[in-house]
Design a binder for these strands. Structure first.
Lengths: 243, 243
DNA sequence: CGAGGGTTTGAAGTGCATCAAATAGTGTGG
DNA sequence: CCACACTATTTGATGCACTTCAAACCCTCG
């Protein structure tokens, strides 16, 4: 039996918020918490690089991290941008122990590093952990299929509209107000669009759907207009929750 | 104990070729084989549609099946094209029981239908089955990340070159000869390109790399030229095996 | 106030899509 | 074995969406 310290208590609480760790026995969480490191980092800090031997996987507890792939020539494709309660780098366990993307902090971030070896151990021992991992990967697979679809069939304004829709709560009514989660350049990269095109596409979107944007504040007067605008060019339709 | 019939024996042998079923106890394979249906279908047969309640998952034993997503407007994005020894539709188990893409036969195909419920049962009971499923999904995730990257950073001739490279054995030497696995229109869709553009891009590729194509017969005089041509615009490099 | 990053705007170029039509290839029935 | 029908592929001409390069603007923060 391990005596939990205040430090591990906090970490355990934080891990419990993460899908990967739901429903696991307390002892397992303690096990992870004890071997973990809590860190903070600022914009630009690189957590790992695609292809690196994976020693740790990560959980974000505050801030934003960009997951991306970069070619020799320097062009990059953003795979995902994650925040509180999300794990990443964990799939390296099933990828020959190598990260399949790079990770970089884009906003002051607090994160937990957990040993990959421990994950490997528990995934093999505990059915529940394996199941958690499976549903996480299925969810990711879904998101990525949608991404591929969108890159193929949607234009820039539609992709932006879809991005905004996914920020709306599924039970949203009437006029919706929300804030862009991170800066426009990053949203653009996330959608596979250049910054200039993003700006212009946003202009077109405003004009086509009466959307208003002031800085990062977005006002959507009519959800249905936006749905009509983008979801007809998608195989799913709002609310297209990621399960 | 179950007495295996000649029918189930054949099926068991075929299932054994599939990653999802490797290393499983004989009894499990028998269990699956007994509840399975072997079928054949021709071009155009739709096996299931995205969003359908999933009752069966599939294993291809001969032929080709296209996995795709289709929008209301009729545009489609091809997610994958699978052949012998590949399972598909199995991830519906972790997707709320719904298929996350549609599947259609594109060439005379022989396939095995297996009950999703049985998969669900065994994935929960048998560690090994869960692990097989995990590595399969990790592999898929990798492929899809690469796909997203390519749609973002590669142009049409580069994507075709990459497609051809992935048809080459990783230890290939000297002049390589191979055949396109399915027709050009489908390859084009698979790469997110229109047929006309595909044709022109192929022309450019031939001109740029001395590649020769006659019908479906491809001759690659220099692998390194092709690698130089495309892999500099990718985060991975040949041979970029899908593990 | 001034520096620097984020964002917008303008002008010009490029790549891919689209529409239209020609050509090649394949399988069919006579 | 040929003519026909039908599909796959190529070619040409044109248009549009997104990119690129350049510069202005805007906002924040030291």
């Amino acid at each position: 039996m391990t005596i939990a310290t205040a430090r591990t208590d906090t970490i355990i609480d934080e891990l419990r918020q993460v899908n990967l760790f739901t429903g696991l026995p307390e002892s397992t969480l303690v096990h992870f918490a004890e071997k973990s490191h809590v860190k903070e980092g600022g914009k630009g800090k690189v957590l790992f690089i695609q292809g690196d031997e994976s020693e740790w996987f990560y959980v974000v507890t505050r801030g934003w991290v960009k997951l991306f792939r970069e070619t020799l020539e320097g062009s990059e494709a953003v795979i995902d941008v994650v925040t509180n309660g999300h794990a990443f780098g964990e799939n390296a366990v099933f990828n020959g122990g190598k990260y399949s993307y790079s990770a970089e902090i884009i906003d002051p971030t607090r994160y937990i590093m957990l040993p990959t070896s421990l994950l490997e151990y528990h995934v093999e021992k505990q059915q529940r952990m394996a199941m958690n991992m499976l549903s996480g990967m299925a969810r990711m697979q879904n998101i990525q299929s949608r991404e591929i679809e969108h890159l193929n069939v949607q234009n820039a304004p539609q992709r932006i509209a879809c991005f905004l829709l996914r920020l709306c709560p599924s039970d949203a009514q009437g006029t919706i107000r929300l804030n862009l989660p991170y800066d426009k350049l990053l949203i653009a990269s996330r959608l596979g669009i250049k910054a200039e095109t993003f700006s212009r596409a946003l202009g077109k979107l405003k004009q086509d759907t009466n959307l208003k944007i002031d800085g990062s504040a977005v006002t959507i007067p009519s959800l249905s207009t936006l749905i009509e605008y983008t979801c007809t060019h998608c195989s799913q339709t709002f609310p297209c929750e990621d399960l």
